[in-house]
C-alpha cells in the first residue's frame, strides 16, 4: 500500500519533471541562443531584441513559482483543457523553467572563447553554422551542467505542483506525511527525493566532465 503510493508519486514526479524539462528546453534553448547572438559585438547584434527578451526573461524569473502557478491558470486551461492534475501542472512548470533555461543557456554560450567564433566567421561560416557547429558543440559541458540545475529546480517546484492536484512526491509527503502524521511516508519521500537529486547531479557532472575536451 505504502509502496504503491510511493511508486505512483515517484512516477508522477518523474513525468512532470521530465515533460516540463523537455518542453522548457525546446523553447528556452532557442531563446538563450537568441539572447547571446543579439548581444552587441556578437554575431547578430540587435540591441532592441536583446533588451526586450532580457526584460521578459527577468520578469518570468522574478515571479515566485507558487504565484505563477495560480496566476496562469486561465492560460493553462486554455492550453491543455484543464488546470489540475499532473498534466495541468506541467504547464506552469514549463513556463517557469523557460526563462531559467534561457539564462542557463546564455551563460554556457557566453563561456565559449570568442576567438573560436571569430575563426569560424573568418572561414566563411554562416550564422546557423556557427550556432550548430561551433557554439553548441563547444558549450556542451556547460549546457549539460546548466540543464541538470534546471532539472533539480524542477523537482523542487514539482513539490509545489501538489497545490493544483498535480500529485508527485511533494504532494504525497504533504498530504500523508504532514497532514496525516505518517512519519514513514514523510521519511521515504525525503529519501527518494534526495536520491533522485543526488543521482541526477552525479550523472550530469559525470557526463559534462566526460564530454569536456578543454
Amino acid at each position: 500500500m505504502v509502496w504503491n503510493l510511493l511508486l505512483r508519486a515517484l512516477w508522477e514526479t518523474l513525468y512532470m519533471v521530465g515533460a516540463s524539462l523537455v518542453l522548457s528546453a525546446l523553447v528556452g534553448v532557442p531563446l538563450g541562443i537568441v539572447l547571446v547572438i543579439t548581444e552587441p559585438r556578437h554575431i547578430k547584434p540587435a540591441p532592441l531584441i536583446h533588451k526586450v527578451l532580457s526584460t521578459i526573461i527577468n520578469i518570468g524569473r522574478s515571479l515566485p513559482f507558487i504565484i505563477l502557478l495560480v496566476a496562469i491558470i486561465p492560460f493553462t486551461r486554455w492550453l491543455v483543457g484543464t488546470s489540475i492534475g499532473t498534466t495541468g501542472a506541467i504547464v506552469p512548470l514549463t513556463v517557469s523553467a523557460i526563462p531559467f533555461v534561457a539564462r542557463v543557456v546564455e551563460t554556457a554560450l557566453l563561456e565559449i572563447d570568442r576567438g573560436v567564433i571569430e575563426a569560424a566567421q573568418a572561414m566563411g561560416a554562416s550564422t546557423s553554422q556557427i550556432i550548430t557547429k561551433v557554439m553548441i558543440p563547444e558549450a556542451v559541458p556547460g549546457l549539460i551542467l546548466g540543464l541538470t540545475m534546471v532539472a533539480v529546480n524542477l523537482i523542487g517546484y514539482s513539490a509545489m505542483a501538489g497545490a493544483v492536484g498535480g500529485g508527485g512526491l511533494g504532494d504525497l509527503s504533504i498530504r500523508y506525511g504532514y497532514q496525516r502524521f505518517r512519519g514513514d511516508i514523510m521519511f521515504f519521500t525525503v529519501v527518494i527525493l534526495v536520491a533522485i537529486v543526488q543521482g541526477l547531479q552525479s550523472c550530469g557532472s559525470w557526463l559534462a566532465a566526460r564530454l569536456n575536451r578543454r
Binding site: 572563447d113 576567438g115 573560436v116 571569430e118 575563426a119 566567421q121 573568418a122 572561414m123 566563411g124 561560416a125 554562416s126 561551433v134 558543440p137 563547444e138 556542451v140 564530454l211 575536451r213 578543454r214
Partner: peptide, 20 residues
C-alpha cells in the same frame, strides 16, 4: 562575403581551435 572569406585563410595568436 562568406564565399570570398573561404579564399582567405587566417591563423591566430591563440590558435582558436574548436576544443570539442
Amino acid at each position: 562575403l562568406r564565399k570570398t572569406r573561404r579564399k582567405i585563410g587566417m591563423i591566430f595568436q591563440h590558435f582558436n581551435l574548436l576544443s570539442s
